[in-house]
C-alpha cells in the first residue's frame, strides 16, 4: 500500500498533549507538508505546553514562544528578518489556538493579513480556552457548556465567523481543514507554500477534556463536524471558494452533538436551534461554493 502522507516525522513522541488531542494531529500533519525549512512562533495556547517543558521540545523545527496576542506580528517580524538576511525561502508560521486568534490576537492577525505579509497563520480551533481550563472563547459554538458558560447558562452566542473576517482582508489563500482529513490539509499546505502573501489555515481540532468526549472519538468528531456541516472544509484562493470535502447529504447535527458532554444538557428544542444555525451558515457558504 502506498502511504498517502510522507513518513518523515518532525514531531517526536513524548510531547505533553492529552490523549486524543486534535491539536497534536494538526501539527504532525502540518509539519509533514511544510518540512524542515520552517520556523514557528506560538502564543500562549495548548501548544505552549504540548511542546514540552524547558529544556525539551518535541519539534524538530525552530520555535519562538511569544505572548498571547502577538502571533501574527511576531511571524511578520521573523519573516522580515529572514528576507533581509537572504533566507526568504524559509516558511514562517504563526500557530495559535482559537482564543489567540478569534479574541486576543485578532488585531495582530488583521494587521498582518491587511499588509499581506508572506506568512502562514494557523489556528487550531478547539473552541474554548482549553489550556486555562475550558473557558468560553469567541470560537465556542452556540449551546456549548464551558466553565464560564455553565450548564444552566450555556453559550447563547454563535461562533464568530473568523474565516469571513479573514476573507474580508482579501488574502491570497485561506482554508479550513479537519484533523480527520489529513490528506486534504496536506494538499492545501503544499499548494499554499508556493503562494506569496498571507495564508490563513483554520483547523478544527477536537479536545477530549474540553468537549467531554472520548479520546478515541477525536477523529470521528472531526469527521462528523465536516459531515454535519458544523465545520465545512474548503479553501478560498484569490476570492474563489472551493469545497474540498463534499458533503452532499449532510448528517443531522445531533450525531455530532451526542458524542460530546459539553452539549449533553441541550434539550430537543435546543438541538433544533443548533441545527438551524448550522443550516443557515451552511447555506450561506454553499452559495459561495456554487458561485465560483
Amino acid at each position: 500500500m502506498k502511504p498517502t502522507l510522507p513518513l518523515e516525522e518532525l514531531m517526536s513522541p513524548g510531547h505533553l498533549a492529552c490523549q486524543g488531542c486534535g491539536a497534536g494531529i494538526a501539527m504532525r500533519t502540518t509539519l509533514k507538508a511544510l518540512g524542515q525549512d520552517t520556523i514557528f512562533t506560538f502564543p500562549a495556547c495548548c501548544w505552549t505546553v504540548i511542546d514540552g517543558p524547558f529544556p525539551y521540545s518535541c519539534l524538530e523545527v525552530p520555535l519562538l514562544h511569544m505572548a498571547f496576542e502577538a502571533t501574527a506580528a511576531t511571524a511578520s517580524g521573523i519573516k522580515a528578518a529572514m528576507d533581509t538576511l537572504g533566507k526568504g525561502k524559509t516558511t514562517i508560521c504563526g500557530w495559535a489556538g482559537d482564543g489567540g486568534t478569534f479574541d486576543i490576537g485578532l488585531q495582530a492577525l488583521s494587521g498582518a493579513a491587511e499588509r499581506n505579509d508572506d506568512i502562514f497563520y494557523f489556528c487550531y480551533d478547539n473552541e474554548a480556552y482549553m489550556n486555562t481550563g475550558i473557558q468560553r472563547s469567541g470560537a465556542t459554538p452556540y449551546g456549548a457548556w464551558t466553565t464560564t458558560t455553565p450548564v444552566k447558562h450555556f453559550k447563547k452566542e454563535v461562533k464568530k465567523s473568523i474565516d469571513d473576517i479573514v476573507a474580508a482582508h482579501k488574502v491570497p489563500y485561506q482554508a479550513t481543514a479537519s484533523v480527520a482529513y489529513p490528506e486534504d490539509l496536506y494538499k492545501k499546505l503544499i499548494k499554499a507554500k508556493d503562494i506569496r502573501g498571507f495564508k490563513f489555515i483554520h483547523i478544527i481540532a477536537p479536545c477530549p477534556p474540553g468537549w467531554k468526549a472520548k479520546p478515541e472519538d477525536t477523529v470521528k468528531l472531526a469527521r462528523l463536524a465536516v459531515q454535519t456541516g458544523v465545520f465545512p472544509v474548503y479553501e478560498v484562493e484569490s476570492g474563489k471558494y472551493l469545497q474540498t470535502i463534499k458533503t452532499a447529504k449532510r448528517k443531522p447535527v445531533l450525531e455530532y452533538l451526542k458524542l460530546q458532554g459539553r452539549f449533553k444538557h441541550l434539550k430537543e428544542d435546543d438541538v433544533t436551534d443548533v441545527q438551524k444555525l448550522v443550516d443557515l451558515r451552511y447555506a450561506e457558504l454553499e452559495k459561495r461554493f456554487q458561485g465560483c
Binding site: I39, T41, L64, M66, A67, E69, A70, A72, A73, T74, A75, S76, G77, I78, K79, A80, A81, M82, D83, T84, L85, Q107, A108, S110, G111, E114, R115, D117
Partner: peptide, 25 residues
C-alpha cells in the same frame, strides 16, 4: 537595506522586533 513593517499597534511593533531580533536581524 532594511525591512520596514508598518504595524497596526505598538504592541505589534515590539512583537515584530522580537521576532526579527530572534531571527538574527
Amino acid at each position: 537595506k532594511a525591512e520596514f513593517i508598518k504595524v497596526e499597534s505598538e504592541h505589534s511593533a515590539m512583537a515584530a522586533c522580537i521576532g526579527a531580533s530572534s531571527a538574527g536581524a
